[in-house]
Amino acid sequence: MKKLLLLLTLPVFLASPLYAVSYPPSVQEPVYLKEDEVMSAGAKVHMFHSGTHDVHNAIKVGDILTVYHEYPPDLWTVGKQTGKVKVIGTIGDYYFEGHVIEGFAKPGSLAVKGSTACIITTRLKQK
């Protein structure tokens, strides 16, 4: 029985490398990601965080956070610094309000200070 099973699975193991395809990660981002809303200097943003005491102790109003954009997040080990955001207030227990002061930010980018990070979710609509 074992020999029959081995005999039947052998062609699968021998042929599987022939059908494997891998593509290197692209240096340039796809067009659909470039169409995302980019928040440049002067835009106000929402930044989501965990709401723990560690975050509230590490990030205060007036702090400047460095913005990193990672693409693709599952392949890159190092983020690309794209700008800076100044924390100008808090919104409830889980959000900071920020102001882009340098470079740009996109939804999904990380705003980092030390080992603490917030996710930039949306921009505030200007009235």
Rank of each mutant, 00 (worst) to 15 (best):
K2N: 13
K2Y: 11
K3Q: 14
K3W: 10
L5E: 10
L5R: 07
L5H: 05
L5Y: 11
L6F: 14
L7I: 06
T9G: 10
L10E: 06
P11Y: 04
P11G: 06
L18W: 10
Y19V: 13
V21L: 11
S22Y: 05
S22G: 08
Y23V: 08
Y23D: 05
Y23G: 00
P25G: 03
V27I: 13
V27T: 13
Q28R: 14
E29S: 08
P30N: 08
V31T: 15
L33E: 10
L33H: 01
E35I: 12
E35N: 10
E35K: 15
E35C: 07
E37K: 07
E37S: 07
V38N: 03
M39V: 02
A41N: 00
A41H: 03
A41F: 02
K44G: 04
V45H: 03
H46I: 01
H46F: 15
H46S: 13
M47S: 07
F48W: 12
H56T: 15
N57F: 07
A58Y: 02
I59W: 02
K60V: 10
G62R: 06
D63F: 11
I64D: 14
Y68G: 08
L75K: 03
T77Y: 13
T77W: 11
G79K: 00
Q81C: 07
V85W: 05
I88P: 01
G92I: 03
D93C: 08
Y94W: 07
Y95S: 03
Y95C: 00
G98F: 02
V100K: 04
V100A: 01
G103E: 00
G103I: 04
F104E: 00
A105F: 05
A111N: 01
V112A: 09
V112M: 12
G114D: 06
T116I: 15
T116W: 01
T116D: 06
T116P: 05
A117T: 08
C118R: 01
C118F: 08
I120C: 03
Q126G: 08
